[in-house]
């Protein structure tokens, strides 16, 4: 200890303290301050950049999700439209078919009616002609048969046979 104290040089201590304290203040002003500030700024910059990258990523993801949603919606809408169109087509076709059928039925019916009427007319005409013909024939026959009295009597008798009193 005594040796240490003897070794102790006040001059060296004085200069060392003075130089060192000056060095601290000089370096603080011209080196450590700017260095630490620059390093801090850089670190802050990196942090900010990372954060904004993260944000951009999130935004991208949400955009993508939105896109997907829109696409899905569009697809659903398209499907609905297609279905509607198909239904419409089907209904139009079936309606047309029904209408056509009804029309055809109508035409057929009126045709049938016409045919029936024609037929009836024809039949009645024929009937008329047949009746007149028959009357003619009967007239002629009667004329011939009733030429003599016997035959007249015979017929009357025959007719009377048929007539029965009720």
């Amino acid at each position: 200890m005594e040796k240490l104290i003897e070794e102790f040089s006040i001059g060296l201590f004085f200069w060392q303290t003075v130089i060192f304290v000056i060095l601290i203040f000089l370096l603080k002003k011209y080196a450590w301050g700017p260095i630490l500030k620059a390093v801090n700024d850089r670190e802050q910059g990196i942090k900010d950049a990372l954060q904004s990258a993260e944000l951009a990523k999130e935004e991208m993801e949400s955009l993508k999700a939105d896109n997907d949603k829109i696409m899905k919606q569009a697809r659903v809408e398209r499907d609905a439209l297609l279905k509607e169109a198909r239904d419409l087509k089907n209904s139009i076709v079936s309606q047309a078919k029904d209408e056509a059928k009804a029309e055809a039925q109508k035409i057929i019916e009126s045709a049938n009616e016409a045919i029936k009427n024609e037929k009836n007319a024809a039949v009645s005409d024929i009937k008329k002609q047949v009746a007149s013909l028959s009357i003619d024939i009967a007239e002629k026959l009667l004329k011939e048969k009733l030429s003599d009295d016997n035959k007249q009597m015979q017929i009357v008798e025959e007719l009377l046979k048929d007539v029965k009193l009720k």
Binding site: L12, Q16, I19, F20, I22, L23, Y30, A31, I35
Partner: peptide, 19 residues
């Protein structure tokens, strides 16, 4: 003391150049 001065000057120039 000369060495201390030398190192101080060295440090000053080294770290101010870094700054």
């Amino acid at each position: 003391i000369a060495t201390i001065l030398l190192v101080s000057v060295l440090m000053f120039f080294l770290f101010t150049s870094l700054a």
